[in-house]
Design a protein around this nucleic acid. Structure first.
Length: 857
RNA sequence: GCCCGGGUGGCGAAACCGGUAUACGCGGCGGACUUAAAAUCCGCUGUCCUUCGGGGCGUGUGAGUUCAAGUCUCACCCCGGGCACCA
């Protein structure tokens, strides 16, 4: 459980809408697969299902203590077999679908087979009829949205599992636990999220989300337009395809670089160094093959983190082979270097040092020629020139500006068969296998000849087997393939016989994010045994383009929200849900911040036990360092809600958290400030109840005059604030009304009827109590939200400021409908104004009535 | 480096479309009640000058637009977040 700030926010919003007669679905669920539960199981040997169950009870108890109005009948846990049955079912939907690139939608795989058999499509250019059955199966498997592929993956030895790109931080460490991550090729389950890249970008226009999250998603998907260019290579090696966003600079390509892991490296590496090989190109090694092998080994030993150190020197080695620049026929040397990444574009680049800083750096270090193909401005100082300008040294492109040159060269490439315009994404397919125990088993069977078979839907849920040890199997050889924890299951789980064929179960489990990709759908219809979610219920609740309000932390800006959108779109394409996007409105709540403390090892210590003496913080008499961060378990700086409840009560805590600032802003916790809201509640109580006698101090008479106006203004502004989640200002308005009541002997009847209702979303307990003491019918929770009287809110007088030469010189009370002539006359007659105008006629008069008269003299 | 946010009193923060900057709360100061304290209630609380009428200056810095700028434009500084050898 994170800090409850966001939960308080949705609870208030839900209660407000219920009082307005809305049918509110406000659920809470538990994403309980994953590392914490598993690690606890490893340590204690207790099955994670048992500890998970216990934790859920604790969480529920704590959440209930906050007075949250969740519909507990709709609660789900991703670890519940009745739930993950459908997570597995969705996986099978992915497995049984393909992405139709023409229609840009997912379709059942059976339709691909039909199209192939009918001859509408070919299998990568080969007639379907000409394929052997095994090749047909292999082709079909390669087209599925869930497919197995050998790709460079993020291998985290400390966690014993592979990780998705999204789970690796920019420092090259695991998102969970900060362990180093290494690249290595492995056969793993992948989900084809990249096919959805364009739709994941475009459909961000359909949702009401914070700009920052929209930017993060666009950034992560990283669409970039450019061209693929094909370079022929000396000898009998196949040509090399490069991706570039600057095809206009191709005349300046003076060498070429492949990623060290590139497929063609072996076949193009020369037998011996050709004439003219410079010494710095060879690592001092006699043969190209040895030099390349040495460089590749060195690269593979580096963790992602090492590869990303800031002051990175360019390194690389010549392959001994040349490519031909298709534009000018120049022979250019081919290098491998780790500044080119296998996972982006084609894993190969044409290097244009004149217009690329990285290439410039490499060219200088390796003594390679540099040709400018864009004319820099005369005052340009520096190396590579990235800006706009006319093309030079570029044959038929000379004189064209960058954009025009790009269009021209792409046309040339396409006409002459040397390449084509294309789009590349930073986003990569979602690595979906984990070697951990505590996750959803992937419902796939492997046949004796490598054929894949989905577990029958009737067999779902596929439960986890019992094992003695929940750890992924450890390996002596660090290069050995990771061994999933499920490999330790008994044979009667692992092996399945169908029609006399023995299949092996898939031993990987799904990643943490699988269950949370679709839980919002299950809340709609949590007990449905027939379907993931009933069609009618889904259409009813998702009618406004998805979930009406999703409050969560920005930390899900990429991971969870991207994955969930992807799954949702697949389900949409297959007709299982009715909206293209899952979450219509997203709101990021801020964090509660607090001091945290680390000891000399950099380990967090319990902030509650840190003492301050003479400006020095100590823990167990050891000096500790003060840091500042998000309140929570990981920094050990939580304020225990139970202690706050005991001292101030739940209503105070709820109000305090809302009053501290806007919901989307992080703010420091300050126990000192709590007394403010606590005083408010006491004052409210004293306004309504005589503390000595318990008498209810409510008058039979309604309010009048200013107090009545204040009441209606309060109703108006609190209601407006509720819609916009401006809870801090709503609370401030309630403070003002409450303060105004202090001077009254008794609370006027109309105010007494309204105040507990306005307050009840924030402080439900005291509101309910007052409601009952006043003898009102039913619960304040079901009382209708009050409405203000427009007539009473409308002002009759306004304060008009009078400016002389831009400075405020007087303030006058004027009727709201004052005419310009009257206003100006009044302004000019003001003594304070006269003191500054000297009685002279103004040169210019601007009136914005009834607020401003501005005079220029 | 690129992309998002943000910078307002001693502190948390308000200020809708450019129109009274600092609502509301905390803290501080003064007063009432009390033997006293707590609690409560009342008043003051941006800053400088003041003949007590007022006046000058104030929303990170510097320019600009405007009768008028916390709000719009440009440049810069600082803080937070995301991405980063992505061709």
């Amino acid at each position: 459980m994170g800090h409850p700030l966001g939960y308080i926010g949705t609870d208030i919003y839900s209660r407000y809408h219920r009082m307005n007669g809305a049918n509110v679905l406000h659920p809470m669920g538990f994403d309980a697969f994953g590392l914490p539960a598993e690690q606890y199981a490893v340590e204690t040997g207790i099955h994670p299902a048992i500890t998970t169950e216990k934790n859920l009870e604790t969480y529920k108890r704590q959440l209930k203590a906050f007075g949250f109005s969740y519909d507990w009948d709709r609660s789900v846990a991703t670890t519940d077999p009745a739930y993950f049955k459908w997570t597995q079912w969705i996986f099978l939907q992915l497995f049984n679908s393909w992405f139709d690139p023409d229609r840009k939608v997912a379709r059942p795989i059976s339709e691909l087979i039909e199209d192939l058999e009918a001859g509408h499509l070919s299998a990568d250019g080969v007639m379907w009829q000409n394929l052997e059955p095994a090749d047909k199966a292999r082709y079909i498997d390669s087209r599925r949205l869930a497919y197995i592929d050998e790709v460079p993956v993020n291998w985290c030895p400390a966690l014993g599992t592979v990780l998705a790109n999204e789970e690796v931080t920019s420092e090259g460490l695991s998102d969970r636990g900060n362990h180093p991550v290494y690249q290595r090729p492995l056969r793993q389950w992948m989900l084809r999220i990249t096919d959805y890249a364009d739709r994941l970008i475009d459909d961000l226009d359909l949702v009401d989300w914070p700009a920052s999250v929209v930017a993060m998603q666009r950034n992560w998907i990283g669409r970039s337009e450019g061209a693929n260019i094909v370079f022929e290579v000396d000898g009998d090696t196949p040509p090399i395809r490069v991706f570039t966003t600057r095809p206009d600079t191709v005349f300046g390509a003076t060498y070429m670089v492949l990623a060290p892991e590139h497929d063609l490296v072996d076949s193009l590496t020369a037998q011996m160094w050709p004439d003219g090989t410079k010494p710095e190109w060879t690592l001092g090694i006699d043969s190209p093959a040895d030099a390349v092998a040495a460089y590749r080994l060195a690269t593979s030993r580096k963790s992602d983190r090492d590869r990303q150190v800031d002051e990175r020197e360019k390194t690389g080695v010549f392959t001994g082979t040349f490519a031909i620049n298709p534009l000018n026929g120049e022979r250019i040397p081919i290098f491998i270097a780790d500044y080119v990444l296998m996972g982006y574009g084609t894993g190969a680049i044409m290097a244009v040092p004149g217009q690329d800083e990285r290439d410039w750096e490499f060219a200088e270090k390796f003594d390679l020629p540099i040709v400018r193909t864009v004319m820099p401005p005369p005052d340009f100082e520096g190396n590579a020139y990235l800006g706009d300008g006319p093309a030079i040294n570029s044959g038929f492109l000379d004189g064209l500006e960058v954009e025009a040159a790009k269009a021209r060269i792409i046309q040339w490439l396409e006409v002459n068969g040397h390449g084509e315009g294309t789009i590349t994404y930073r986003l990569r397919d979602w690595l979906f296998s984990r070697q951990r125990y505590w996750g959803e088993p992937i419902p796939i069977l492997h046949g004796p000849n490598g054929e894949l078979r989905g577990v029958d839907e009737a067999e779902l849920p596929l439960r986890l087997p019992e094992v003695d040890d929940y750890r992924p199997a450890s390996m002596d050889d660090e290069d050995a393939d990771p061994m999933p924890a499920l490999a330790k299951a008994d044979e009667d789980w692992r092996l399945v016989e169908i029609d006399g064929v023995t299949y092996t179960r898939e031993l990987n489990t799904m990643p943490q994010w699988a269950g949370s990709c679709w839980y919002y759908l299950r809340f709609i219809d949590p007990d449905n045994d027939e379907r993931m979610v009933g069609r009618e219920a889904e259409e009813y609740w998702m009618a406004n383009g998805g979930v009406d309000l999703y409050v969560g932390g920005v930390e899900h800006g990429v991971l969870h929200l991207l994955y969930a959108r992807f799954w949702h779109k697949v389900l949409y394409d297959l007709g299982h849900v009715s909206t293209p996007e899952p979450f219509a409105r997203l709101f990021n709540q801020g964090y509660i911040l607090a001091d945290a403390f680390t000891d000399d090892r950099g380990v967090y210590v319990d902030a509650a036990d840190v003492k301050l003496n003479d400006g020095v913080y100590t823990y167990n008499d050891e000096e500790v360092t003060r840091v500042y961060g998000k309140m929570g378990k990981s920094l050990k700086n939580s304020v225990n809600p139970d202690a706050i409840f005991a001292e101030f009560g739940v209503d105070t805590l709820r109000l305090y958290e809302m009053f501290m600032g806007p919901l989307d802003t992080s703010r420091p916790w300050s126990t000192r400030d709590i007394v403010g809201v606590h005083r408010f509640l006491h004052r409210l109580w004293r306004n309504f109840i005589d503390e000595d006698t318990g008498e209810v101090l409510v008058s039979d008479e309604p309010s009048s005059g200013e107090l009545q106006v204040l009441l209606h203004k309060t109703i108006a502004s609190v209601s407006g604030d509720m819609e916009h989640l401006h809870f801090n200002t709503a609370v401030a308005r309630l403070f003002e009304l409450n303060n105004a009541l202090v001077a009254e002997d008794r609370v006027p009847a109309d105010i007494a009827a309204v105040f507990p209702r306005l307050l009840s979303p924030f402080a439900p307990h005291i509101s309910e109590e007052l409601w009952h003491r006043m003898g009102k019918e039913g619960s304040v929770v079901t009382a209708p939200w009050p409405h203000h009287d427009e007539e009473l809110v409308r002002e009759e007088m306004a304060t008009m400021i009078v400016q002389v030469n831009g400075k405020v010189r007087d303030r006058l009370e004027v009727p709201i409908g004052i005419t310009e002539t009257e206003a100006v006359a009044l302004a000019l007659a003001s003594e304070r104004v006269l003191a500054h105008t000297g009685g002279a006629d103004p040169r210019k008069v601007i009136a914005r009535l009834p607020n401003v008269v501005s005079l220029v003299v």
